[in-house]
Protein backbone atom coordinates (compact mmCIF):
# COMPACT_ATOMS: atom_id res chain seq x y z
CA UNK A 1 0.00 0.00 0.00
CA UNK A 2 1.24 3.46 -0.82
CA UNK A 3 0.60 6.95 0.51
CA UNK A 4 -1.35 7.53 -2.71
CA UNK A 5 -3.77 4.72 -1.76
CA UNK A 6 -4.16 6.26 1.66
CA UNK A 7 -4.83 9.67 0.14
CA UNK A 8 -7.44 8.53 -2.38
CA UNK A 9 -9.33 6.38 0.14
CA UNK A 10 -9.26 9.26 2.63
CA UNK A 11 -10.55 11.52 -0.13
CA UNK A 12 -13.42 9.10 -0.88
CA UNK A 13 -14.22 8.90 2.83
CA UNK A 14 -14.20 12.68 3.23
CA UNK A 15 -16.40 13.22 0.15
CA UNK A 16 -18.93 10.65 1.42
CA UNK A 17 -19.03 12.43 4.79
CA UNK A 18 -19.57 15.81 3.08
CA UNK A 19 -22.38 14.32 0.98
CA UNK A 20 -24.00 12.80 4.08
CA UNK A 21 -23.83 16.11 5.94
CA UNK A 22 -25.39 18.02 3.06
CA UNK A 23 -28.21 15.54 2.53
CA UNK A 24 -28.84 15.31 6.25
CA UNK A 25 -29.43 19.06 6.38
CA UNK A 26 -31.66 18.95 3.33
CA UNK A 27 -33.63 16.03 4.76
CA UNK A 28 -34.41 18.22 7.77
CA UNK A 29 -35.41 21.21 5.60
CA UNK A 30 -37.61 19.63 2.92
CA UNK A 31 -41.33 19.04 3.49
CA UNK A 32 -42.59 15.47 3.90
CA UNK A 33 -43.05 13.61 0.63
CA UNK A 34 -41.33 11.15 -1.71
CA UNK A 35 -38.25 13.35 -2.22
CA UNK A 36 -37.73 13.81 1.52
CA UNK A 37 -38.21 10.04 1.94
CA UNK A 38 -35.61 9.00 -0.65
CA UNK A 39 -33.21 11.81 0.28
CA UNK A 40 -33.20 10.55 3.86
CA UNK A 41 -32.22 7.05 2.63
CA UNK A 42 -29.60 8.65 0.39
CA UNK A 43 -28.15 10.50 3.40
CA UNK A 44 -28.05 7.23 5.37
CA UNK A 45 -26.24 5.52 2.46
CA UNK A 46 -23.59 8.24 2.23
CA UNK A 47 -22.94 7.92 5.97
CA UNK A 48 -22.61 4.17 5.56
CA UNK A 49 -20.18 4.62 2.67
CA UNK A 50 -17.98 6.83 4.84
CA UNK A 51 -17.95 4.00 7.38
CA UNK A 52 -17.09 1.42 4.66
CA UNK A 53 -14.07 3.48 3.59
CA UNK A 54 -13.01 3.94 7.21
CA UNK A 55 -13.24 0.15 7.67
CA UNK A 56 -11.32 -0.50 4.42
CA UNK A 57 -8.53 1.81 5.51
CA UNK A 58 -8.43 0.02 8.85
CA UNK A 59 -8.25 -3.40 7.16
CA UNK A 60 -5.32 -2.12 5.12
CA UNK A 61 -3.56 -0.92 8.27
CA UNK A 62 -4.00 2.74 7.35
CA UNK A 63 -5.48 5.70 9.21
CA UNK A 64 -7.61 8.26 7.34
CA UNK A 65 -5.84 11.46 6.42
CA UNK A 66 -7.45 14.74 7.45
CA UNK A 67 -8.67 16.24 4.19
CA UNK A 68 -9.27 19.93 3.67
CA UNK A 69 -11.64 19.76 0.70
CA UNK A 70 -14.34 17.57 -0.80
CA UNK A 71 -14.95 17.20 -4.51
CA UNK A 72 -18.48 18.64 -4.11
CA UNK A 73 -17.15 21.88 -2.60
CA UNK A 74 -15.74 22.86 -5.97
CA UNK A 75 -19.10 22.60 -7.73
CA UNK A 76 -20.43 25.70 -5.99
CA UNK A 77 -17.47 27.70 -7.20
CA UNK A 78 -17.73 26.36 -10.76
CA UNK A 79 -21.50 26.25 -11.21
CA UNK A 80 -22.98 28.64 -8.66
CA UNK A 81 -25.23 27.88 -5.74
CA UNK A 82 -28.27 25.68 -6.41
CA UNK A 83 -31.39 27.41 -5.13
CA UNK A 84 -34.20 24.86 -5.38
CA UNK A 85 -34.67 21.11 -5.11
CA UNK A 86 -34.60 20.60 -8.89
CA UNK A 87 -31.20 22.31 -9.15
CA UNK A 88 -29.90 20.37 -6.14
CA UNK A 89 -31.04 17.04 -7.61
CA UNK A 90 -29.57 17.89 -11.02
CA UNK A 91 -26.25 18.61 -9.36
CA UNK A 92 -26.61 15.40 -7.34
CA UNK A 93 -27.26 13.36 -10.48
CA UNK A 94 -24.14 14.75 -12.16
CA UNK A 95 -22.09 14.04 -9.04
CA UNK A 96 -23.44 10.49 -8.67
CA UNK A 97 -22.53 9.69 -12.28
CA UNK A 98 -19.02 11.01 -11.64
CA UNK A 99 -18.71 8.90 -8.49
CA UNK A 100 -19.86 5.73 -10.29
CA UNK A 101 -17.36 6.35 -13.06
CA UNK A 102 -14.52 6.94 -10.59
CA UNK A 103 -15.31 3.89 -8.46
CA UNK A 104 -15.75 1.70 -11.56
CA UNK A 105 -12.32 2.71 -12.83
CA UNK A 106 -10.72 2.13 -9.44
CA UNK A 107 -12.32 -1.32 -9.23
CA UNK A 108 -10.74 -2.31 -12.55
CA UNK A 109 -7.15 -1.55 -11.52
CA UNK A 110 -4.92 -4.66 -11.56
CA UNK A 111 -4.05 -6.01 -8.12
CA UNK A 112 -6.39 -3.59 -6.40
CA UNK A 113 -6.50 -4.41 -2.68
CA UNK A 114 -9.38 -6.83 -1.85
CA UNK A 115 -10.70 -4.38 0.77
CA UNK A 116 -10.97 -1.65 -1.88
CA UNK A 117 -12.60 -3.99 -4.39
CA UNK A 118 -15.15 -5.26 -1.85
CA UNK A 119 -15.97 -1.72 -0.69
CA UNK A 120 -16.48 -0.48 -4.24
CA UNK A 121 -18.72 -3.45 -5.10
CA UNK A 122 -20.88 -2.78 -2.06
CA UNK A 123 -21.12 0.98 -2.63
CA UNK A 124 -21.91 0.57 -6.34
CA UNK A 125 -25.21 -1.15 -5.53
CA UNK A 126 -26.31 1.91 -3.56
CA UNK A 127 -25.02 4.30 -6.23
CA UNK A 128 -27.19 2.62 -8.87
CA UNK A 129 -30.23 3.25 -6.69
CA UNK A 130 -29.14 6.88 -6.15
CA UNK A 131 -29.04 7.45 -9.91
CA UNK A 132 -32.47 5.80 -10.25
CA UNK A 133 -34.33 7.70 -7.53
CA UNK A 134 -32.83 11.08 -8.44
CA UNK A 135 -33.68 10.48 -12.11
CA UNK A 136 -37.27 9.64 -11.22
CA UNK A 137 -37.54 12.68 -8.94
CA UNK A 138 -36.23 14.94 -11.71
CA UNK A 139 -38.79 13.50 -14.13
CA UNK A 140 -41.48 14.32 -11.59
CA UNK A 141 -40.17 17.87 -11.21
CA UNK A 142 -40.52 18.47 -14.96
CA UNK A 143 -44.18 19.20 -14.27
CA UNK A 144 -43.30 22.17 -12.05
CA UNK A 145 -40.16 23.45 -13.77
CA UNK A 146 -40.63 22.33 -17.36
CA UNK A 147 -38.66 19.58 -19.10
CA UNK A 148 -36.47 22.07 -20.94
CA UNK A 149 -35.39 23.88 -17.77
CA UNK A 150 -34.61 20.55 -16.08
CA UNK A 151 -32.55 19.48 -19.11
CA UNK A 152 -30.67 22.78 -19.27
CA UNK A 153 -29.98 22.74 -15.54
CA UNK A 154 -28.54 19.22 -15.75
CA UNK A 155 -26.38 20.29 -18.69
CA UNK A 156 -25.17 23.36 -16.77
CA UNK A 157 -23.96 21.19 -13.89
CA UNK A 158 -22.58 18.51 -16.24
CA UNK A 159 -20.37 21.09 -17.92
CA UNK A 160 -19.27 22.41 -14.53
CA UNK A 161 -18.41 18.85 -13.48
CA UNK A 162 -16.25 18.37 -16.57
CA UNK A 163 -14.25 21.46 -15.61
CA UNK A 164 -14.02 20.51 -11.94
CA UNK A 165 -12.92 16.93 -12.74
CA UNK A 166 -10.32 18.09 -15.25
CA UNK A 167 -8.85 20.43 -12.64
CA UNK A 168 -8.99 17.69 -10.01
CA UNK A 169 -7.11 15.25 -12.27
CA UNK A 170 -4.50 17.84 -13.17
CA UNK A 171 -3.90 18.82 -9.55
CA UNK A 172 -3.75 15.24 -8.26
CA UNK A 173 -2.41 13.31 -11.25
CA UNK A 174 0.46 11.87 -9.23
CA UNK A 175 -2.03 10.40 -6.74
CA UNK A 176 -4.79 9.16 -9.06
CA UNK A 177 -3.04 8.77 -12.43
CA UNK A 178 -2.70 4.98 -11.99
CA UNK A 179 -6.49 4.70 -11.57
CA UNK A 180 -7.17 6.58 -14.80
CA UNK A 181 -4.56 4.82 -16.94
CA UNK A 182 -6.41 2.06 -18.85
CA UNK A 183 -3.16 0.10 -19.20
CA UNK A 184 -3.44 -0.63 -15.49
CA UNK A 185 -6.89 -2.24 -15.80
CA UNK A 186 -7.35 -5.96 -15.20
CA UNK A 187 -10.39 -6.11 -17.49
Amino acid sequence: MTEHDRWILSFYRHSEISGAQFFARLAKTLPAGPIQHDLTKHFADESQHAWYWTKALDEMGLEPLKMTFAYQDQYLEAAGMPTNIMEILSLTQVFERRIISQYARHGRVKDVHPAIKATINTIMEDEKWHIHWVGEALKGLEESFGAERVRKTYEHYRQADEAVYERFVTEHEERIGHILDKQNYAF
Partner: peptide, 21 residues
Protein backbone atom coordinates in the same frame (compact mmCIF):
# COMPACT_ATOMS: atom_id res chain seq x y z
CA UNK B 1 -22.36 27.72 1.76
CA UNK B 2 -24.45 24.64 2.62
CA UNK B 3 -26.21 26.66 5.32
CA UNK B 4 -26.99 29.33 2.73
CA UNK B 5 -28.55 26.74 0.40
CA UNK B 6 -30.51 25.33 3.34
CA UNK B 7 -31.80 28.81 4.21
CA UNK B 8 -32.84 29.61 0.63
CA UNK B 9 -34.73 26.30 0.33
CA UNK B 10 -36.46 26.83 3.67
CA UNK B 11 -37.36 30.43 2.77
CA UNK B 12 -39.06 29.24 -0.42
CA UNK B 13 -41.06 26.72 1.59
CA UNK B 14 -42.05 29.40 4.10
CA UNK B 15 -43.10 31.94 1.47
CA UNK B 16 -44.49 29.38 -1.00
CA UNK B 17 -42.38 30.71 -3.87
CA UNK B 18 -39.87 29.10 -6.24
CA UNK B 19 -36.48 30.64 -6.93
CA UNK B 20 -34.06 29.57 -9.65
CA UNK B 21 -30.34 30.16 -9.81
Amino acid sequence: SFALIEMVIALQEALNITLVQ
